[in-house]
Amino acid sequence: MELAKKQTRKAKIQRNMLPYYYLVPAFLIMGVITFYPLIYQVIISFTNFETQHLLLGLKSPELEFVGLKNYIDIFTGALPVENFNFFRVLEFNFWWAISNVFFHVPAGVLIAVILNTEGLWGKRIYRALYILPVVVPPIVVATVWRNIFDEQYGAMNQFLTAITTFFGQTDVVRIRWLTEFKPPIPGFLPGAPLTLAYYSMMIANFWLGWPFMAVVATGALQSIPKDLYEAASIDGATGSQQFWNITVPLIRPAMIPAAVYGFTISFNLFAFVFFMTGGGPARSTEILVTFAYNLVRNLRWFGVAAAFAVIIFFIALVVLLITNRITRATQNISEA
């Protein structure tokens, strides 16, 4: 009896240990290549780590712990970098993400609604072609659009030239889409000048972004029972009344998470911004991640870059908490 009890206890312990066995490989490897580097990053964010410390790392005799200096320098703009102001970059970053979602979601919904019209000719062809932008890798999209916005040889200026020629103008259009520093609408966003490059990026990212929203919206639209519209039209609701009173509230539970997703993606859209403008002109389209990249790759201020990464981490945490709130709040609405 005693023996049996012992055995069952042993079995129980084994059963309780089992999940940990399954976790061992992942945590062993992540411990070395993920968690340890993240901690290491926090440590060097308090140092003046630069290129000359690369070989010996923390053991370098000249490496100094500078306390919060890196953080303070970032916030106060004391970094010897031209045109850098942390809060301007932060503001622009948020504005960039929000303004993208602001256009992508309504456009996606609108186009999904159009494509949902019964009896529309060629629906399938439109649908198949409209998702092409989702299929093209963003780095390709960014480089292609960069060339499209080229001042001298770009397709955009050539396109505009073709239009102005049609109306009798003889001048060649030479808009400096990506290099003009003077904002077309001064003071539109207080504190952060929105250059033409921003608008160019908006156009390119709009091209890239709305089809995804249209896919999500179509899914949501088709789960709305048709009889709701029939009931509404019997009740005398017009098309636009049906749209605002049935379509919008019923697709909202699907669109808000999609919008949140779009926001997070746009917020950290490194490759796209880096490939298209590199943050220029004069850092006017720099977002947090592209600036962090410049700190490491071009300036090689590893200590400062580490501090910057830690700051980005906390910003991402705050963004996550807020977006989670939004998603959860809307979930409750949809279930109520």
Binding site: L38, I44, F270, F302, A309, I312, F313, A316
Partner: peptide, 10 residues
Amino acid sequence: LMPAIGLATP
């Protein structure tokens, strides 16, 4: 939560 560059640096 850490963007790619935040892991790449360390």
